[in-house]
């Protein structure tokens, strides 16, 4: 179980003291991911979702808030002591090309962390070799083919599978997949998503999926939780299927409306929400953060800041003064 309370992160842009600009990447985000559970962070680039994922994986520090891993608050530990905790959370990079060392074969890449574990637990060399093959088979690769090869000799999809196999060498509790399929060929993406889903079901690894594409989030698991993040704040949260079918926050609705409709197969939703253009809203912090782009804003939105809370009679939470269900998602065309 991994939880976070009030995670805050501000980036100070480097440069002269006078020109230093602050960017609020995260503004007090709460989350909880159960053991073996699935969650997705959805948002545009710059929403802070990637930063949050990196903080969870222990690759970035945060300014305020608490991360608790299996009941242990991380702030109570010294950096060295945190390492074994964060090792249970492995990040799968967006770009499988840079995530693998081009000068090392898959064999070398997998053996390094396995050797370390073998040394720590007194296991033998043959365990290392066997485990490497086992893991490659687990991610759907042929060890005989893949092991002696360098990353450039593999396709994008295979590389991402190797990256996943490498993450599995430390028996992680959670995989954080940051746009893990966006650089992979379209016809192979679903294979990677299915693999993550499968690992979750078979190994009980929880999966945190970070993406701007809501549709891919659906494939990690129907019981998954969806966090819609806008400018460092969670604006809507709930079950994947609920949020897709009944979004109430205008930002969530904008995201869903923006997903291309496969005309011929589907027809557009009835009330698509198109946000107004985002113009230097970076510095605008008063009231609802989305107000300036929201087509439904009122005076209250400009002055008051909405907090995440339960909508009446639903399981989902939202941060909007004027929640309303709109059918924005495409529907199957009336064929057949």
């Amino acid at each position: 179980m991994i939880t976070g309370q009030g995670i805050t992160k501000t980036f100070r842009q480097r440069g002269s003291v006078l020109a230093g600009r602050e960017v609020k990447a995260l503004r007090g985000v709460d989350f909880a991911i159960k053991k073996g559970g699935a969650a997705s962070f959805i948002g545009e680039s710059g929403s802070g979702k990637t930063t949050l994922g990196r903080i969870i994986a222990g690759l970035e520090s945060h300014d305020a808030g608490e991360i608790t891993i299996d009941g242990t608050p991380m702030s109570s530990l010294r950096p060295k002591q945190r390492q074994p905790y964060f090792r249970r959370i492995q990040l799968i990079h967006q770009d499988p090309y840079s995530a693998l060392n081009p000068t090392r074969t898959v064999h070398q890449t997998l053996n390094a962390p396995l050797d370390l574990r073998a040394k720590g637990t007194g296991r033998s060399r043959s365990w290392v070799e066997g485990r490497a093959e086992e893991l490659l088979e687990l991610v759907g690769l042929d060890p005989g083919y893949v092991l002696p090869r360098y990353p450039h000799q593999l396709s994008g999809g295979m590389r991402q599978r190797v990256v996943i196999a490498r993450a599995l060498t430390v028996d992680p509790e959670m995989l954080v997949a940051d746009e893990a399929v966006s650089m992979i060929d379209v016809s192979l993406r679903l294979g990677i998503l299915a693999l993550l889903k499968d690992l979750r079901e078979r190994l009980g690894v929880s999966v945190l999926f970070i993406t701007h594409d809501v549709a891919t989030a659906r494939y990690i698991g129907e019981d998954g939780e969806l966090y819609v993040i806008y400018r460092g704040q969670v604006v809507e949260r709930g079950h994947v299927e609920t949020i897709i079918s009944d979004p109430v926050h205008p930002y969530t609705q904008s995201l869903l409306s923006a997903i291309p409709v496969l005309r011929g197969l589907e027809q557009p939703g009835e009330e698509p929400v198109v946000p107004t253009e985002a113009l230097d809203e970076g510095n605008h912090d008063a009231g609802c953060l989305f107000a300036r782009r929201c087509p439904f804003r009122t005076g209250r939105c400009e002055s008051e800041h909405p907090v995440l809370g339960h909508a009446e009679g639903t399981s989902q939470e939202h941060a909007c003064f004027h929640p309303r269900r709109r059918s924005v998602v495409a529907m199957p065309a009336g064929r057949a």
Partner: peptide
């Protein structure tokens, strides 16, 4: 056909979606 089936969609049965085997 395979390409369309391999695209994650927002509606419909998730189970129907399939990755194309092999690689380009």
């Amino acid at each position: 056909q395979g390409l369309i089936r391999a695209i994650p969609r927002l509606v419909g049965d998730i189970g129907e979606a399939r990755a194309l085997p092999g690689r380009p």
